[in-house]
Structures are given as C-alpha cells and as structure tokens.
Simulated scan of single mutants.
Amino acid sequence: MRVITTKDIQGIAIAEGAHRDGHEWQIVAVFDRVNIRGGQSQFLPTGGGDPFFAHTLQPGEVVCNEDAQMWHNATDFAPVDPVQQGHRDIFIVATNRWHKRRYGEDFDQASMHNGVSNWQADRPAEVAEIVEAS
C-alpha cells in the first residue's frame, strides 16, 4: 500500500484512527519512506488511551500485533520538503487460524464454487481436506 503526501495532500495513514480489525494477528512491514515526517506506528489499550508502543518504522522494520488485545494506529504524515511529493510503502498481512476464519462456511463454499481457479481439478487434496474438516 502506498500513501502519498504533498504540500496540498496530507498523508493519511489510517483514515478511521485507532481501531481493531477483527483478525487474530496483523503484521505491518515498511518497505520505503521518502521525503516524509510522521507515520508513527502505535499500539494502544483497547478502548483508547495513551500508546504503550510508539515507533516510526523505517524501511525493513516490521511490527506484529494480536488484534484482540489492543488497538492500533499510525499517525498521518507530511512531506519534509513541501516542493517534493513524499510517500510511504507498507505491506500488511492480517491472519486468522482456519477454525477462526473471518468469512465463514458460506463464503468458503462460494469461493470454491465460483473462484477464479477450478479447485476441484487444480487442488483435489485441499478440497478433500476442507470437506472432511467441515
């Protein structure tokens, strides 16, 4: 995900502010920061309050959090040199264990039935494992 900022565009890191996403675990990796100040990653007590973790991740740095245990946020950012555009590139992974999957059985069945690949032909062992677990 790339968020840009200019003298006219604020780099809004997280539009909704401090929040939880409903997944078990989340990983945020920063790949690039160019001409920006701000963008601090924060973990806060559930329900709000002062951050107990606050760090401006640099390229190559990663944070991981257990979503149910805390809120997360990132502060907005702006260009250091307002004549030049700035940006931050991040990669986000949100995951749940299979038995706590987010979308449920109806979604899984529709995905297998209407998915872009033919799961029955392409991955018969995986389909059999999913059916047996149901």
Rank of each mutant, 00 (worst) to 15 (best):
M1C: 13
I4C: 14
I4T: 12
I4N: 13
K7Q: 09
D8S: 11
I9G: 13
G11E: 03
I12M: 10
A13I: 01
I14F: 01
A18I: 02
A18L: 08
E24Q: 13
E24K: 10
W25M: 11
I27T: 12
V28H: 06
V30G: 03
D32V: 10
R33W: 00
N35G: 04
I36L: 04
R37W: 02
G38C: 07
G39P: 02
G39H: 02
S41W: 05
S41C: 05
Q42S: 07
L44M: 11
G48H: 07
G49K: 03
D50A: 15
F52L: 08
F53Q: 08
H55W: 10
T56V: 13
T56M: 09
L57C: 06
L57P: 01
G60V: 06
G60A: 03
E61M: 05
V62C: 09
V63H: 06
E66V: 12
E66I: 14
Q69T: 14
W71V: 02
N73Y: 11
A74P: 00
A74W: 00
A74Y: 04
T75A: 01
D76Q: 10
D76F: 09
D76C: 10
P79W: 01
V80L: 08
V80K: 03
D81P: 05
V83P: 11
Q85P: 12
Q85F: 10
G86K: 01
H87M: 08
R88W: 00
D89W: 04
N96K: 02
R97Y: 03
W98P: 12
K100A: 11
K100E: 02
Y103S: 11
G104C: 07
G104S: 06
E105S: 11
F107G: 07
F107A: 12
A110H: 12
A110T: 07
S111R: 13
N114P: 04
N114A: 14
G115K: 03
V116S: 14
S117Q: 14
S117I: 12
N118G: 06
Q120I: 13
Q120T: 11
Q120M: 13
D122I: 00
R123I: 00
P124A: 05
A125W: 00
E126W: 11
V127P: 03
A128Y: 02
A128Q: 13
A128N: 09
E129R: 15
V131T: 08
V131P: 01
